[in-house]
Computed example of a mutant assay.
Amino acid sequence: MSQTLTSSSQAARTPAPARSPADRIAQWIPKLVLSPTLVIVVVFFYGFIFWTGLLSFTNSRMLPSYGLVGWDNYVRLFNNERWLVALGNLGIYAFLFIAICLVLGLLLAILLDQKIRAEGALRTIYLYPMALSFIVTGTVWKWMLNPQVGLEQFVQSLGWDSFQFDWLVNPDFSIYTVVIAAVWQSSGFVMALFLAGLRGVDDSIIKAAQIDGASRFTIYTRIIIPSLRPVFFSAFIMLAHIAIKSFDLALALTGGGPGISSDLPAIFMYQLSFTRNQMGIGAASAMIMLLTVIAILVPYLYSELRVKKHD
């Protein structure tokens, strides 16, 4: 026993072998490679978030100013009629955009999951709009929906003179043109998410249901679609993030008009900060948008972490 203790104490006193310079360099290389990215993230992401939050409590106008005014910018923001219109438009746009994309993406994924011919070509066609920038999408749909040269003029040239589709210039319907263009661009991406989820469903469960006499409709509604809950949640988070920060699509398509009928919070923030010299209120609107995104992300992250903890 004493010999064992003596040998263990001698081993504990034995110094670790000195590392060579090559080992030290190999240890520091990953840190050196990642350090620029870390600095950029800290400064240009979290740093600018903090700075924007600080500006929202100041009397900044054309240029940043650091005279604190408390919650005054937030009070003025929610007393601004244009901001309330932008929030209402965001509610309409986000609800329709997310709902239609989820339903349409799921239907397209189910269609492609039937092992149809030319699946690769159809998948490419559905995904192609996502490769375009929102500026290009907005410009193309602005031309297509223009009553003078787009869809309305084309249908009327076919002999249907009473046809009218003036949503782009109609204040009551202009926000819906933004929904149409956004759904066209993003539904293919949602389709790809659902298709990946469908291909990950265990075939043995489906075969067992078929042996029990379940119809295809029952298999999808009772087995497959409920198993896609994580995909639904992920797609919802992504679509909600796209909707809240929507700027370039609406700006290229309607410019927030006619008037402010299709205004969105991102357009409001940009114009008040950089064209109307009210940077403090613009920063306050940006922080409200950030808090909205956080309110959506936190439940998602909490559920994901809880699932991993139970696993």
Rank of each mutant, 00 (worst) to 15 (best):
D161N: 12
L87F: 05
I100C: 11
V149L: 11
G197K: 13
S174R: 09
R123S: 13
T137D: 04
T177E: 11
L77C: 05
V183E: 04
K115Y: 08
I98L: 14
D166L: 03
F173H: 15
I116R: 00
N73A: 00
Y126W: 15
S133L: 10
Q156R: 14
G120S: 05
L112Q: 06
T139N: 14
K142Y: 02
W160C: 03
F154I: 09
F134E: 11
F173W: 15
T124N: 01
V136W: 11
S157H: 10
V103C: 10
L145R: 06
V190E: 07
E119W: 01
M130L: 09
V179H: 12
C101S: 14
A196C: 00
A109C: 07
V85G: 12
E152H: 04
E119I: 04
G159Y: 11
R117Y: 00
W141Q: 08
E152K: 05
N73T: 01
N146V: 00
D113E: 13
P147Q: 06
Y176S: 01
R123D: 12
E81W: 14
L158N: 00
Y176T: 00
Q148C: 02
I100V: 14
G120F: 00
S186Q: 15
S157V: 06
F165K: 02
F189Q: 09
A109I: 03
L107H: 05
G150Y: 10
F78S: 01
W167L: 10
W71T: 14
R76W: 03
Q185I: 02
S157K: 09
Y74P: 01
D166P: 04
N80P: 01
W83H: 05
A181Y: 03
A99W: 07
C101R: 07
E81S: 15
A86C: 04
G88S: 13
L158P: 00
G91L: 13
F194L: 06
L145Y: 12
W160P: 01
Y93D: 06
L111D: 05
W71Y: 14
N80L: 11
L77D: 06
E152G: 05
D166C: 05
F78R: 01
G150K: 05
D166I: 04
P129G: 09
I110N: 10
I135G: 02
G150H: 07
A86N: 03
L96K: 01
I110M: 15
G105C: 10
I125H: 09
M130Q: 10
G188Q: 02
K115R: 14
V149Y: 14
S186P: 10
V75A: 13
F194T: 03
E152T: 11
A182C: 07
W143D: 04
Y74E: 00
V190N: 08
Q156N: 12
N79S: 12
F95W: 00
A94P: 02
Q164A: 12
L151T: 04
D166E: 11
W143Y: 10
R76Q: 12
V103T: 06
W83S: 06
E119T: 10
G91A: 11
E119L: 06
D113C: 06
N73W: 01
D166S: 14
L90H: 07
P171G: 08
S187L: 13
L122D: 12
L111S: 13
F95Y: 00
Q114I: 00
M144S: 05
